[in-house]
Amino acid sequence: MKWGPLTYEDARALAEFWAEVEAEDRIGEIYGAEDVAEHLSSELIDLAAGTFAARDGDRIAAFGYLPVRQATEGGVHALRLWGGVHPAYRGRGLGRRIVDWAVDVAPMLGEKAFPGVAVEVHLGAHDTNPALAALAEGAGFAVVRTFAHMERSLSGGLPALRTPEGVRIATWSPEVDDGARNVRNESFRDHWGSVPHTPESWAGHITGSRNFRPESSFVALAGDRAVGVLMTHFFDAQSAHRGERQAWIQIVGTLREWRGKGVAGALIAHALDAFARQGYQSAGLGVDTDNPTGAVAVYERAGFAITERHKNYALSVPQGETGDEPGAAVHE
């Protein structure tokens, strides 16, 4: 077994890795080669220092991917670990090695991005994956939040289209993009774990993503001011696996002073109607189940129901010297 960093050329191998993981675990995580390539080319990842993979010949047996974030929150830089172990290689300690690597390298990555800021490593575990939860807890991580996926069919029973007085809903365009990003950043200030999008991260991960669907994304305007936003992505590999086209609502946000006036409900109703006309069969979104704005209830009123839950684990990492050089290839 050879260990070392990922490269841009690993996109197809990682897509095959995730297909085999999904066949075993059935957690709904499907990534095509182009999706993986987008992750590997992110401005937030240092491939040499922030990735670590075990290879058995041409096959990826396990990997870890640890990007920095575009900003910090509350004096903490939270780096989210993404990765997994191929089903054929489980039970050999590869997962623990990936987690230990992430904990070891996080202080160096964090210090480089935001000198002097405290560092945490985060990872998510689906409720259907008790082995990952046990791994996280065994490595000293603790549950800090619970998230859920919610979905609804678009075959009927869509919410009525009602727009608050003085508000109109416009399809996303470059002209309203700055306002959309501002609404997202302002409305997520009181959301746990959220950090503001810079123009670069917004363009790279939201509007510049290959998955972004501008015709299915909307901005609520009061006069010329953006007061609400709904941004939509479409994941073709995941939809092909599901056997239906699903519109994924990536962001829903309303300025604090406009909450409770029906802006979010209007955006969702407008979007669901548009999705159905655009040929989608279902819609999905992710939500913090402890969201202080009552988002779960808003989505339930729009016909969404929870289909999956996952816990977010976190570990504070002492700043100081790290262990082995992260990009060095080692063998097992």
Rank of each mutant, 00 (worst) to 15 (best):
M1C: 08
P5C: 11
A11M: 07
F17G: 03
E22C: 06
G28D: 05
G28T: 05
G32W: 02
D35C: 08
L44I: 05
D46V: 07
A49K: 04
R55S: 09
R59Q: 15
I60F: 12
I60E: 08
A61H: 03
G64M: 05
P67C: 10
V68C: 06
Q70D: 14
T72K: 05
E73Y: 11
G74N: 12
G74S: 09
A78C: 08
L79D: 01
P87W: 13
I98M: 01
V99Y: 00
V99S: 04
A102K: 02
V103G: 02
D104N: 13
P107T: 01
E111H: 11
A113M: 06
F114T: 03
P115H: 07
G116S: 09
E120L: 05
E120F: 04
H122M: 14
A125C: 14
H126W: 08
D127T: 09
D127Q: 10
N129L: 11
A133W: 02
V144W: 00
T146E: 14
T146Q: 11
H149L: 09
M150R: 02
R152S: 06
S155K: 08
S155E: 14
S155M: 07
A160L: 13
E165R: 12
R168M: 13
R168N: 09
A170H: 02
A170F: 01
A170V: 15
E175K: 03
V176T: 11
V176N: 01
A180I: 01
N182W: 02
N182M: 09
V183R: 05
V183K: 00
N185W: 04
E186A: 13
E186K: 07
H191M: 10
W192K: 07
G193A: 09
H197M: 07
P199M: 09
I206Y: 03
R210N: 13
A220V: 11
D224V: 01
V227C: 02
T232F: 02
T232K: 01
D236F: 01
D236T: 15
R242K: 15
A247F: 00
A247L: 06
W248Y: 15
T254A: 08
E257F: 06
W258A: 04
R259Q: 15
G260F: 11
K261N: 06
L267F: 02
L272N: 04
D273H: 14
R277I: 14
Q281E: 15
S282E: 13
A283M: 10
T289L: 15
P292G: 12
P292R: 10
G294T: 13
A297C: 08
A297N: 13
E300Y: 06
G303A: 11
I306Q: 12
T307V: 15
E308W: 05
E308M: 10
R309K: 12
K311R: 15
L315P: 02
Q319E: 15
Q319V: 10
T322V: 12
T322L: 13
D324P: 12
G327K: 00
A328N: 11
A329T: 12
